[in-house]
Nucleic acid binder design. Structure first.
Length: 339
DNA sequence: CGCTTTTGACCGGCGC
DNA sequence: GCGCCGGTCAAAAGCG
């Protein structure tokens, strides 16, 4: 992505509420009413003003929705660039995800193949994404696998990753890959939702939870449907909070603790990415965008990048709402109904 | 009482 | 064919 698009990402958020949208000047609207022969009694004037205000707000709402969509896309691009930038500034970025799994003594062949596929692109189900293949299996359900790394408190021994969705734990196993058990979750928000989640502690850093999401939610994010009340499962543990909607094209981060989110590794787009390890944790770097290295290495750009990210977050209404909820919950624990 | 979590049993795939 | 292993099931326990 181009550098200029980064500017658009957050600057568009600084919308002016009183701005007349869609290039319809306010006075033109007024003249339209005049042209329709609307009587200019005070009551009618007030009604027309309200109508005009309603139209303006509706149009503005529509435009904001579009802006939010663009912002999501730009945010993803920005995040990828940051990830790439960080990976290039870490000389320890040498190992791949396959190395990550090689902690276990003996590796099963299929597992290695799966890892290899995940690096190269995707498992057989998403090989159809390559336009060069013409297999009739394109109607198969594409199981989208997303991996999320979440840093938790060292004292937190639970395997709960709070992402806003409702999960029901249906199993726990101790695998050979890691001494810590692996927890299996199913999405319990919608009975028809078949999304599964595996949560396991990182081998290198026990304070990092590795959540692997399989499938896509066929429902909207619960936090979007009810931003105030939290799900029962999400109330259980508020230590590692993040929001990831892997099912939507743009991964929306409604995180109240953005620093907890270390990485989102989306296997579906892994064909254009390569995984590497930064500081013991895997990082994703895009294969493209290397021509931006020069200005990305400059401190000005770093500062600008940080400012842009901060601006994007602080201007984001959802982030503000989440932050307010988090703060009110932190300082006023008895203020909100907990049950 | 209903939902969630726990946990041992079971199943199927894979390697030898 | 056997054993290992990851994933899933389901009954029991826990919890609000």
């Amino acid at each position: 992505m181009e550098f200029t698009s980064l500017v658009d990402t957050s600057l568009d958020l600084n919308f002016r509420p009183l701005r007349v949208p869609d290039g319809v000047p306010k006075q033109e609207v007024e003249s339209n009413f005049i042209g329709l022969g609307i009587d200019h009694t005070p009551v009618k004037d007030e009604a027309s003003d309200l109508l005009e205000e309603l139209n303006r707000v509706s149009a503005e709402n529509k435009k904001l929705t579009e802006m939010l969509t663009v912002m999501c896309q730009n945010y993803n691009a920005l995040r990828n660039q940051v990830t790439e930038y960080m990976s290039k500034h870490n000389t320890t970025a040498t190992t791949t995800s396959a190395d990550d799994h090689s902690a276990g003594s003996k590796k099963r062949k299929s597992e290695n193949n799966e890892i290899l596929k995940s690096i190269q692109g995707e498992s057989s189900s998403s090989d159809e994404d390559n336009s060069c293949t013409k297999k009739p299996r394109e109607e198969h359900i594409k199981t989208k696998t997303t991996r999320v790394y979440v840093r938790t408190e060292p004292s937190d021994t639970s395997l709960i990753v709070k992402d806003g969705y409702q999960w029901r734990k249906y199993g726990q196993k101790v695998t050979r890959d890691s001494p810590s058990p692996r927890a299996y979750f199913k999405c319990s928000f919608a009975p028809t939702c078949l999304v599964k989640k595996k949560v396991q502690r990182s081998v290198e850093d026990q304070s990092i939870l590795v959540a692997t999401y399989e499938g896509e939610h066929n429902h909207s994010h619960p936090s979007k449907m009810d931003a105030v009340t939290t799900s029962p499962s999400s109330r259980l543990n508020g230590k590692s909070t993040l929001g990831v909607t892997a099912s939507v094209p743009c991964q929306t981060l409604n995180s109240t603790e953005p620093k907890n989110m270390l990485q989102i590794e989306d296997k579906k787009v892994a064909s254009s990415t390569s995984t590497s390890t930064v500081g013991g944790h895997k990082r994703k770097s895009l294969s493209g965008g290397a021509d931006n290295n020069n200005h990305q290495n400059r401190p000005e750009f770093q500062h600008f990048l940080i400012e842009q990210m901060a601006t994007s977050l602080t201007k984001d209404p959802s982030f503000q709402a989440a932050l307010a909820a988090a703060i009110s919950g932190k300082f006023l624990p008895n203020n909100h109904t907990d049950k």
